[in-house]
Amino acid sequence: MRCTRALLHSAAVFAFLASAAMATATSANASDKITIMVGGYEKQIYLPAKLAETLGYFKEEGLDVELLNEAAGVDAENQLLAGAVQGVVGFYDHCVDLQAKGKFVESIVQFSQAPGEVVLVSSKHPEINAPSDFKGKTIGVTGLGSSTNFLTLYMASKAGLQSGDVVTVPVGAGGTFIAAMQQDQIQAGMTTEPTISRMVKTGEASVLVDMRTVESTRKALGGTYPAASVYMESAWVDAHKEEAQKLANAFVKTLKFINTHSAAEIAEKMPKDFYVGDKDGYINALEAGKGMFTPDGVMPEDGPKTILAVLSEFSKNVKGKQIDLSKTYTTEFVKNVK
C-alpha cells in the first residue's frame, strides 16, 4: 500500500512538473525576442523605431523587441537575409529590389510617404547647381546598393547622365558624411536630418534637391515615394501573424503620437545624444519634416509604382523584370489596428 501511494505521489509530482515546464515553454515562446535592425536609428527618417521603444509601446503589446543600429540600409538588408534579425527599419524600395533577385520581403508598416532625404552640395563647389552637374563628381551615399544610392543614380539618369558619368561612394551619415565633405572626398551627397541641419547651419553645404516633404518629393521624382518602413521576410510574416500584428499595433500608435504631438514634445522622448549638441536645431528639423510620416502606416496608393519606375530606370536587377508589387507590401496588419 505504501509503495502504491508513493508511486501515485511521484506520478502526481511528475505531472505537475511537466505541466509547469510546458507552461513555462509556452510563455517563453510567446515572448521570444524580435530583433529589428535600423539603418541608422538616430536619423529622423527612422524616428518611429526608437520612439516606439521609449514610449513603451512594444512592452504594452507584450513584445520583447531589440533594436540594433546599422549605418546603411543595405547592410541591414543583408542581416535580414542571413537570418540574423527578424525585421529591418529601412526604405521600402529594398522590397522591390530584392524581389527582382528572387527574395520575397514585404513592408508591414509604412512609416513615411517621402524619403526625408536631401542632396547637399559642398560650399567649395558652387559649380554644382543641378543633378546634371554631377558629371565627373564624386557623390556621397550611405552605402552602395542603399536607397540613397538608388535615388542618386536615378536623378543622374533623369538629368541625362550616362552610367559612369558619376561616381557614388559610401560615406554613411552623421560624422562620417560631414568629414567626407569637409575633406572634399565628396563634392555632394544625399543624407538626412540631423546631418542636413548641421551642415547648412555652419555654411559648409547647401540644399540642392529637397525630398523632405510629399510636395517637394513629387517635384523631384514625379510621384509619392514611400520610404522608411518596417520590412520582414514574407515567410516569417506568414508564420508569425500574431507577432506581426502586435508590431503593427505598436508602430501605428507611434505614428499617431507623432501626428498628434509637437516636434518639441517628440524630441523630449528621444535619447539626448540624438540632438548632437543642438536640441533646438533637432526640433526645428523635425518640425519641418514631420509631414513625411504617414498617420496610419498605410502604403500610399501611388507609391509602389513610383518606386518601380525609379528602379527600372537604372537598376540592372530590376530592369526588364516582372515585379509583383502586391507582394512587396501588405496593409493587412495596419488596417486591423484598433
Results as ranks from 00 to 15, higher is better:
A23G: 08
A25G: 03
A28C: 10
K50N: 11
T54H: 01
Y57M: 07
E61T: 02
G62S: 02
E66M: 11
N69R: 09
A72H: 10
A84S: 14
Q86Y: 02
Q86H: 10
G87K: 05
V88W: 14
V89D: 09
V89G: 05
C95P: 05
L98T: 08
G102D: 00
G102T: 00
F104N: 14
I108M: 02
V109G: 03
Q113S: 15
Q113G: 14
A114G: 07
V118M: 04
S132I: 13
D133V: 11
F134E: 05
K135S: 08
I139H: 04
V141M: 02
V141P: 01
V141E: 01
L153Q: 15
Y154L: 09
A159M: 02
G160D: 03
T168P: 03
Q183V: 03
Q187N: 10
T191Y: 11
E193F: 09
E204P: 05
S206L: 01
M211I: 12
R212M: 13
V214A: 14
T224K: 10
Y231Q: 07
S234P: 02
A239K: 15
A248R: 06
V252G: 01
T254H: 01
T260A: 05
T260N: 11
A264P: 08
E265M: 02
M270N: 04
F274W: 13
K279G: 05
D280T: 12
A285R: 00
A288Y: 01
G291N: 12
M292C: 10
P295A: 01
P295Y: 00
V310Y: 11
S312E: 15
E313H: 08
F314T: 11
G320Y: 08
Q322W: 11
D324S: 12
E332W: 08
V334M: 12
